[in-house]
């Protein structure tokens, strides 16, 4: 297990190095090797995850260490899928370091095995957790793509055709990628919230209990819903959408970590450390 984690982190680091070297040197083989290294890391990561799952019999999301471990896995996975589809070349220089950092933090945290609680041991919980994590990874990417969009838009508007102008793809591609990220993230988040409500009904007898996590999830969901509505109805594209996806991600981060660390609630123990 320990070895797998170290190998995973090593692969992610190498991939990061490849993508950053690509950013500066613009050699295609660097981009490709970044991708394959990340894929290799993801493979090890999955193996570690499955190993952990088989050994403990539940999804490893009961400590902050485990939660981040899972988050790193979904970031890498979702990035691999999106990169395969859109090939936004510079994006790797955002996603690979992100996955690496998450994994590094995760590996530094204490990891006493969580006492299994039957209450969490249900298909709905696992589903809830996985879709939410995938959604969050998609939103993280959307934020990254949005930042790239803002950089590129700035250089086109201000006619300063420097380092990034040459390296970043077209505005349309960034916008389309960001949009797809948001759509998939939103779908996943919605599914996650629904299963969460259903599970709350089963476990606590009510759908909504004004738990801080619930409230903040609701706020985040509304933010992204507003973004999508703006896009459909009012044509919020480009800059506005990019800024919104960054704001949305900030709210998401707070929901994900901030709520557990600063506020109390029934999700608290997932980030215990």
């Amino acid at each position: 297990m320990e070895v797998l984690i170290i190998i995973t982190i090593l692969f992610y680091m190498l991939s990061t190095a490849g993508y950053i070297a690509y950013l500066f040197l613009q050699k295609d083989y660097l981009n490709r090797s970044g991708y394959y290294l990340l894929a290799a890391g993801f493979f090890c990561h999955s193996a570690a995850l499955i190993y952990g799952f088989v050994r403990s019999g539940h999804l490893p999301v009961y400590t902050l260490h485990e939660t981040l471990f899972m988050a790193g896995w979904t970031i890498a996975g979702v990035f691999l899928v999106f990169q395969y589809k859109f090939n936004v070349k510079v994006l790797g220089a955002y996603a690979a370091p992100l996955a690496t950092i998450v994994m590094l933090i995760s590996s530094q945290l204490p990891r006493e095995p969580a006492q299994a609680k039957n209450i969490f041991n249900s298909f709905w919980v696992s589903f809830h957790v996985i879709v939410i994590f995938i959604g969050e990874a998609a939103f993280a990417l959307a934020c990254g793509v949005g930042l790239l969009y803002l950089i590129q838009e700035y250089s086109i508007k201000n006619k300063s055709h420097g380092f990034f102008f040459r390296r970043l793809p077209s505005l349309e591609l960034l916008d389309a990628t960001g949009y797809t990220c948001i759509i998939s993230g939103f779908t996943m988040l919605t599914l996650g919230l629904i299963t969460g409500f259903l599970y709350a009904k089963l476990a606590w007898g009510r759908f909504w209990s004004w738990d801080p996590k619930e409230v903040w999830s609701g706020i985040t969901w509304l933010l992204y819903a507003a973004l999508l509505h703006g896009r459909f109805a009012l044509g919020w594209r480009g800059r506005k959408a990019a800024i919104m996806s960054a704001i949305g991600f900030a709210a998401l981060l707070f929901t994900f970590l901030g709520v557990n660390l600063f506020l109390k609630g029934h999700h608290g123990e997932f980030t215990r450390w």
């Binding site: 590129q152 086109i156 102008f165 793809p169 077209s170 505005l171 349309e172 591609l173």
Partner: peptide, 8 residues
Amino acid sequence: ELGRKIFG
């Protein structure tokens, strides 16, 4: 070239 940077 600029058009390509905007529209792809």
